[in-house]
Design a protein around this nucleic acid. Structure first.
Length: 208
DNA sequence: CTTGAGATGTTCT
DNA sequence: GAACATCTCAAGA
């Protein structure tokens, strides 16, 4: 098990500067970390979706740039967090150079650190592998809200590190599908996930 | 395992 | 008004 001294450091800017579709794949197997007060939580990213405003009808800022969604234009490695369905938050990693609107939605992580904290935030009796499966659940488990919008993902409180030995993912096991919960842009296969992973969201057919 | 309804706030038409 | 990058719970197969 990891201890505090072994928690890895953030990725460099170059990692986040990869083209959005490549970044969405590279993020599978990377680890999301959050340090809030005395609580540390960490999870290996197992499911992502790419959104590229210039060409993607499902993306925020498509044809109609919005001031409220300015974070998507921010420098690569910025957090874009928005509130949806009246109850939930979604967490994105901003990609592409500053001024370009694009991001990768982090849909699910495999919990590897601070599981008890995540379970408590989810109001579960005990930790579950699925407690951060789905963008809304993930934000609850990591206590991410609009207050964290625009945060630098290479900071001390919220960051992303490279592949984990604790839950390694082989490149060959990454699959693609249509994105979940959208009506336009379904022809784009921009969802990436680790096949067969129990921490991926959605019905069984979308986890194989 | 699947389906469907309800909860809820912000943004868009 | 309607739609929405969602989740939970209860009911049915």
């Amino acid at each position: 098990m990891l201890d505090n001294l072994n928690i890895p450091k953030p990725e460099e800017e170059a990692f986040f500067l990869q083209p959005t579709l490549e970044l969405a794949q590279s993020l599978i197997g990377a680890t999301l970390w959050r340090h809030l007060g005395s609580e540390i939580t960490g999870g290996v990213i197992v499911e992502t979706e790419a959104y590229i405003s210039a060409v993607d009808p499902a993306s925020h800022n498509y044809r109609r740039p919005s001031k409220k969604r300015a974070a998507m234009y921010g420098p690569p490695g910025t957090a874009y967090i928005y509130f949806t369905y009246g109850m939930y938050h979604c967490f994105n990693v901003v990609s592409e150079p500053e001024g370009v609107s694009a991001a990768v939605l982090i849909r699910a992580v495999y919990p590897i650190y601070g599981q008890e904290i995540m379970a408590a935030r989810r109001r579960l009796a005990a930790p579950q592998l699925t407690m951060a499966a789905g963008p809304g659940r993930l934000c609850m488990a990591f206590a991410l809200t609009r207050a964290d919008n625009m945060a630098d993902l290479r900071g001390n409180d919220l960051w992303i590190s490279g592949p984990s030995n604790y839950y390694p993912i082989e490149k060959g096991t990454i699959r693609t599908s249509s994105r979940i919960g959208i009506s336009s842009g379904q022809e784009l296969q921009w969802r990436y996930y680790s096949a067969g992973c129990p921490a991926v969201s959605g019905p069984a057919a979308l986890r194989r």
